[in-house]
């Protein structure tokens, strides 16, 4: 096992009654990596991700995130990760500045750090003229970029993104991925789920989940070679067709 691994998962399982949502998955993610976590709807991606974030206790298995155990040290994990859920989760009735301030505050940033972060993010996202507008007045693409920036406001070791670009136009998606690359270059590991296969190509490594299990895990190039496909789209279709679970 590589020392630089920030996520180490071994036989992680989550069942709800008889239903096994996540079935003995094992993988590692190294520092600064952009790890694509693919799968059809209902394959168990979100459940797996929620376990790694400390939002949901696994039924069995082992997982270390940022050096902490998901069973015993969930709260320590939370200090070291960022999370952006499928549901947009900034406060719509607060302004951009107030949202940054609030999340910075509850992650324990100092007043000075919050001020610096706010200035940096507002400039970086070109929101200078909007920092005092309510978040609900922003277009979706801007909201998503803002949500991502807020999720990493405390410079976490890992950021988990659950379908961050759903419903966003291609130009904004491109910009969003630039933010992801920025974060990765700063050493933040990015763990991302997506349904867009072009985005899967941007990832360093990709895993594909089918019915709660990881069916394939490799670089996009490697996957295409193994499955004799020209695109990630084709790889995904070949694997996802095996699914017996409905949506």
């Amino acid at each position: 096992m590589n020392k630089e691994n920030v996520i180490v998962v071994n036989g992680l399982t989550k069942s709800f009654g008889d239903f096994v949502a996540v079935d003995h998955i094992s993988f590692e993610v190294s520092k600064g990596e952009i790890f694509g976590f693919l799968g059809a709807n209902g394959a168990g991606k979100t459940t797996a991700m929620r376990m790694l974030c400390g939002l949901s206790t696994p039924t069995s298995g082992k997982a270390m995130v940022a050096g902490f155990d998901v069973f015993r040290e969930a709260e320590k994990i939370k200090q070291n990760i960022g999370y952006m859920s499928q549901k947009f989760s900034l406060y719509e009735d607060l302004t951009i500045k107030e949202n940054i301030q609030f999340y910075g505050g509850i992650y324990g940033l100092t007043k000075k750090q919050i001020q610096e972060k706010t200035d940096y993010l507002v400039a970086h996202l070109h929101l200078q003229n909007h920092q005092n507008s309510l978040v609900k007045s922003l277009p979706l693409g801007w909201k998503q970029k803002l949500a991502f920036s807020v999720a990493i406001v405390h410079d976490p070791a890992i950021v988990f993104l659950d379908e961050p670009t759903g419903g966003v136009d291609p130009v904004t998606r491109r910009e969003f991925w630039e933010l992801i690359y920025d974060a990765s270059e700063r050493g933040i590991t990015v763990f991302v789920t997506t349904h867009y296969m072009d985005e899967a190509e941007y990832c360093h490594r990709v895993s594909i989940m089918v019915d709660g299990r990881i069916e394939a895990l490799d670089t996009p190039k490697g996957l295409k070679k193994t499955y004799d496909s020209v695109s990630m789209d084709e790889v995904f279709l070949k694997l996802a067709r095996k699914a017996v679970r409905g949506e």
Partner: peptide, 9 residues
Amino acid sequence: TIEQINVTP
């Protein structure tokens, strides 16, 4: 939003 709060320490 509560989920976003729950994922903070």
